[in-house]
């Protein structure tokens, strides 16, 4: 059952990117995002685009999966592009009406911004497609370890545990919601027709049982965890230890190289 539902966004494969240590991956993704923002001119941004494209190809996730993500963000992308079209400075005036003018500078800027957003989406999708949700939360927990020294001792583990549990229960709740929906439909509930108010009202018979069962599940889970002597992160060891390997070093080197070129291009041009 669990397999039928998209669990997070993970796409099973065994590429170089999949094998990279999740901690390294998260850090590098943040670095990549920073470099994309640092790319101040078209040359460095195109270099970034080339590098991101390389990452996507190496990840061996079908390109249409990435496009699917892009589709969701398309309205934002188009909106940004249109707004920026009118804010460009310099260049020759191409079109002018009312208070709005479109210049070649505007077209340049609009393209620049749209590309930048698209790259950001691609990079973050590359992370979520190649890393399982559990690995992600584990890695976040590890990366946040330094917070323990500034008095947030239990917070780090608790936060990571909350994220893990939330992710784990998404498919369960979807399944539960489907069951309840069917049960209420069998009692004649009409979920498909009517105006907005009516449709929201029609959700009550589904949301209330769902809420109650979530609370019940939560208390069952808490009890089960206590029965296994769970008492937070203190002294807890992991079944799957994360190891950095040669792969991680190569991937990091590639990113550093790319980053220095971006900086170089920014200074030179």
């Amino acid at each position: 059952m669990l397999k039928d539902i998209t669990f997070g966004q993970y796409f099973e494969s065994n590429s170089l990117i999949h094998r990279t240590d999740p901690r390294v991956k998260i850090v590098l993704m943040i670095a990549l995002i920073v470099f994309i923002f640092v790319s101040g001119n078209m040359f460095s941004l195109l270099l970034s685009a080339a590098f991101v494209l390389l990452v996507l190809i190496v990840s061996r996730v079908p390109f249409k999966m990435y496009l699917k993500n892009m589709k969701a963000i398309l309205p934002v992308l188009i909106f940004t592009a249109i707004i920026n079209l009118f804010y460009g400075e310099g260049g020759t005036v191409l079109l002018s009406f009312w208070k709005l003018t479109v210049t070649t500078g505007g077209i340049y800027r609009s393209f620049f911004m749209a590309l930048r957003i698209a790259l950001l989406i691609f990079v973050s999708s590359a992370l979520t497609y190649t890393t399982t949700p559990n690995d992600l939360t584990d890695a976040i927990e590890k990366l946040l370890t330094p917070l323990k020294f500034i008095g947030l001792k239990s917070a780090v583990h608790t936060l990571a545990m909350m994220m893990t549990i939330a992710l784990r229960f998404i498919p369960t709740l979807i399944e539960e919601a489907e069951k309840i929906m069917n049960a209420q439909k069998a009692r004649g509930a009409d979920l498909e027709s009517g105006g907005l108010v009516q449709r929201v009202k029609a959700l009550i018979p589904i949301l209330i049982p769902l809420l109650i069962s979530s609370v019940r599940r939560a208390s069952d889970l808490a009890e089960a965890m206590e029965c296994r002597c769970y008492n937070g992160g203190e002294g807890k060891t992991r079944m799957k230890q994360m190891h950095t390997s040669l792969t991680d070093i190569w991937v990091t080197v590639a990113c550093v190289l790319y980053g220095s070129f971006v900086v170089l291009l920014n200074i030179l041009l």
Binding site: K179, I180, N182, A183, Q184, K185, A186, R187, G188, D190, I204, P205, I208, P209, I212, S213
Partner: peptide
Amino acid sequence: IRKIRSKVGLVFQYPEYQLF
């Protein structure tokens, strides 16, 4: 199709979970 649901009633497993 909704009309058939009052003619053929279906009681799911653990129907008490649908009370609201």
